[in-house]
Amino acid sequence: MKAAWNGGEESEGGEGALVLDFEGAEKEILFLSLTEIQEHYEADFEQLPAALKKYWSGTLSASADPELAEAAEDLKETRLAWRSDRLKALDRWLASDGILADPDSHRLRLDSDEIDLFLAILNDRRLTLAALHGFDDPVMEVNPASIEDNDRQRALWEVHFLAFVMEHCLQGLQGEEE
């Protein structure tokens, strides 16, 4: 996989774009991951497992300051609203004419105003998988192949794969800074 920043003058719209070139099955795996998180965003919050309810409720203050009770509710509402905002973006990208749908293209082009959202969505998938499977520091250090449970093993591979995609995106974005 390669990622490169395509500067303003050469890009459509003139604000630049991040261009990702995938190899082998990378794009298909990414497509499947995004389809999974799309389904997750669609799911009714009340039906989610406790770990994911906790994740999406968020925490405003570690000290449970009573002065922040109302603000904590605001945060929860905001976090839940992200699910619908991100679902709309995914519906657009994964639609038949969307940037991710063409099976023959190994290239993904993200306009400058889509990059933060793309990274946040990939990270949502990583964080929700980790919350669901209870991944902690020791688990993140082990070789996924050593995990016997198939679901956990697949989830850990996916968490690492998406980190690999995000790292490439961040390296590509360094071209924007230069």
Partner: peptide, 19 residues
């Protein structure tokens, strides 16, 4: 501070605020 916590959490970081 609330604004920053919201923004940092929007990216998935574990951010909180306290006096």
């Amino acid at each position: 501070a609330e604004f920053f916590v919201h923004q940092l959490q929007a990216f998935g970081l574990q951010a909180t605020m306290e006096r």
